[in-house]
Write a protein that binds this DNA or RNA. Sequence first.
DNA 1: GCAAGGTC
Length: 616
Amino acid sequence: MVAKILCVAEKPSIAKAVANHLAGSTVPASNVSGIRWLKNYEFDFSFGQPWGHCSVTMTSVAGHLDRLEFDERYRKWNSCDPGSLFDAPVSNIIDKDKQPIARNIKQQARYAKALFIWTDCDREGEHIGSEIRKLAQEANPRIEVKRARFSNIEKAHVLNAARQPIDLDELQANAVAARIELDLRIGASFTRLQTLSLQPLGEELQGLTISYGSCQFPTLGFVVDRYFRVKSFKPEKHWRIEMIHQREGKKVNFRWDRVHLFDRMAATILFERCLAARTAKVVKVQTKPTNKWRPLPLTTVELQKMGSRFLGMDSQRVMKIAEDLYTKGFISYPRTETDQFDRAIDLKKLCEKQKNDPSWGQYASGLCEGGFRTPRAGKNNDRAHPPIHPVIHVTRDKLSPEERKVYEFVVRRFLACCSEDAKGNITTVEVEYGSEIFSSSGLVVLERNYLDVYPYDKWESSSQLPQYSAGEKFVPNEANLVQGKTTPPGYLTEPELIALMDANGIGTDATMAEHIAKIKERQYVMVQARSGGPILPDDDAEEDRGATQRRSRGASSRRGRGASQNGGGSSRTQRSGLQEFIPSTLGVALIQGYDDVGFEVSLSKPFLRKEVSWVK
DNA sequence: GCAAGGTC
């Protein structure tokens, strides 16, 4: 008799894709009673030894099945001292809406020889695998359990994974079990303690849930930390030498190599040497090619950052839309840390699918006709999902306005990844004036390449430098000692917060947006549109030019480092319209309160959480 | 009325 093997994936889309690959053709889906979107796929497949030719049922769960909860008598908020939640009995239950999924696995496991677990190859996937195993073994104690190791759903890779199964990683599964229990006990006990003891302190606190969470607090901590850095900022005076030369009707503003000095006397002495020298000497004129690199393949974190920067949506909204697009089959899985495409994915074919779009179709055609370049590879690979990319072409009328924005971004980003870098020439003129070196540069963009399809990056030719030749001397038209001062940082913006959470291991790509939404909902932080004010970390701001200055306005546009690779571009345009986070009195008080308690490890800082969720 | 992590 043919052996039966049960395969269970983490989500329906993987079950479907894997089933079709293993079967070699589209497998009909059969319904599972009690749950509309769950399907079973039945087909034959030859696993390697010892299983051989088998009859397979492929199905899935939808994330975790189990939920950890306190026993009945601890559930009411006033039923116990919050501290007792640290050792109150807890148990795993399966929510009612997940019961049909569990029932399906048990039914299918009953007559199966083996269970193959196809959950994502990450820590949570390992734990979900252990939940599936527990169910299967309840129905069939003798079932053999294996795990497929796969990092994408490309056919050859999937077939390979099916034939070389490994074992579940118990250590990782256990680490997640510990994480779940800690989060529940600490979250529930601190939340009850805070809410019950703080609410009576003020009218404004009535009815508020004053929650504590191992991720929400470090998230809030970042906002509060920045707030205090802005508040306690003391401007420092500095001085710089400005030198302007006019030639061919153009005003050339030379930058001082030292940028500025905080010592007035030193700056003055250097400035006087410049004046004493009278003439400046051109020491180097150099024109060299420069590139602006195309973007890296798209990760979740990057999608969220770009969303709040360019699409006018907060990170939670962007993720919601991206998930909808994924569910409809328009884009790939939107929760990924991977910024490198696997060789096995046919990227050209994906470009081809975009050929008929009225906006970027022509550009996509260009890629198909020779413009295609293999994308750059970033440093991250979660071995579970490819970078976010469009799966099929979708016409405008099938999308809501917000869906359209996110889909368009995903497509343009993908096409940009598959393009050539932008190319230009940068000319730098370096002069010696007194004892000091000054320089100025001009950029000519020669080939826009990926920029044509990716308007989110800016790289434009600057005004051109007049001719200079090495060795020549000239008398500057103006030389000034300019006093400026350092400017405070801005309040934290959403892309900055996401970057901090990412770098410090707070939350996962799937949950960072939720934590941000949570601290807003709890009224720990407020959001305001960034407008004017001391935003730009640019020493041109807030200059006090004093009485001696003759410098004309409008000549300062040459300050930018036109050729910086991967640079963020001018911050002024990118930052306008951005939201920034200001902590509420409550938010500040909570963070300060915890810091004042002086735990060995600060709960407002990310270090403890990072240790809990650290992988290897 | 609590957490964070999956996913539909």
